[in-house]
Design a protein around this nucleic acid. Structure first.
Length: 293
DNA sequence: CATAGATCCTGTATGC
DNA sequence: TGCATACAGGATCTAT
């Protein structure tokens, strides 16, 4: 469940159902799922057994579970198709089960399920971070996400306007602001009436501020509805899907009328993926800036 | 240095 | 029916 709202839904589930529990056994069913754990799958398994999870944290699309009494955390990234689900031990494995963790209380076990194996788990060091307290080493390279209270709006505006590349590319760059993916980038651009091919450098400060407000708005609304799900690939820790798909205005709506002006939504290939936009509301780099008055 | 493109993987949907 | 192709919500490595 890749973007911020979906990952936050998972974090909340982990916070409720996994924090405070002590790991009994870890079973790595596919080595690729722990490829980011440099010391290998055996080391990953050995170092987790007997340790207790303190809580569940998140920045952008990264999740981590700090271990009690240690300066380490299990870092998880769901990639394109990863799921963290809680299931009874006797539930069938399913074809994409990658890692299984049991707990000493005998309750539901935690499973990492990932069809495409772009996601993964690793045990990483928690290192001091001047602003955030502690952060896992693999998370330090990304920026704060827009829902982080300490997110620096001015810095974001400055960085967007310093870029020579397309606005959508900037939104997807996790080192500028983390947590935004293909869906919410398109949705925020639609809400702000900006075209993703606009060059960052050409935007006014108020335009970038509006865009940031739209990002927060759409992510907040999605979170309230449990995230966006098109199919069973994107579920919370209890295997349930969110409802935000119903509220999408642009993403996945090629040919359908724009909810503002009725013009059919267009889809174009961009950065090896799809971008959806309203060709009337969101004027492109070739046309006049839409917010000009 | 900033930026653009290729690549990792498995499954589903679509067209011939 | 079989087969080929396009596409899927992401991040990272490589080349320019």
């Amino acid at each position: 469940m890749p973007e911020l709202p979906e990952v936050e839904v998972v974090r909340r589930g982990l916070q409720q159902w996994v924090s405070g529990r002590t790991i009994a056994n870890v079973d790595v069913r596919h080595p690729r799922a722990v490829r980011r754990h440099e010391a290998g799958a055996d080391d990953f398994v050995r170092r987790l057994a007997g340790h207790r999870f303190r809580c569940a944290s998140r920045r952008g699309k990264y999740l981590w579970l700090p271990l009690a009494g240690e300066d380490t955390a299990v870092v998880a990234h769901l990639g394109m198709s990863g799921q963290l689900v809680l299931l009874p031990s006797d539930a069938p494995d399913g074809p994409h089960l990658r890692v299984r963790m049991t707990f000493d209380d005998g309750g539901r076990e935690l499973r990492f399920v990932d069809q495409r194996t772009f996601g993964g788990l690793a045990l990483a060091e928690l290192v001091p971070d001047e602003a955030a307290g502690h952060l896992p080493a693999p998370v330090r390279h990304i920026a704060r996400d827009p829902l982080d209270p300490a997110f620096d709006d001015d810095e974001f505006v400055g960085r967007v306007r310093a870029r020579e590349s397309a606005l959508k590319r900037i939104l997807l760059d996790q080192t500028v602001a983390s947590g935004i993916g293909n869906i919410y980038a398109d949705e925020a651009l639609w809400r702000t009436r900006l075209h993703g091919s606009r060059v960052g450098r050409t935007l006014t400060r108020p335009q970038v501020r509006d865009l940031l407000a739209s990002v927060r708005e759409v992510m907040g609304e999605a979170l309230e509805q449990g995230g966006t799900s098109f199919d069973s690939l994107y579920v919370n820790v209890n295997g349930e899907s969110g409802y935000f798909e119903r509220s999408l205005h642009a993403y996945g709506r090629e040919g359908e009328p724009c909810d503002r002006c009725g013009t059919p939504i267009r889809r174009v290939a961009f950065m090896n993926r799809s971008s959806y936009f309203c060709p009337r509301c969101q004027r492109g780099a070739r046309g006049k800036p839409s917010a000009r008055r």
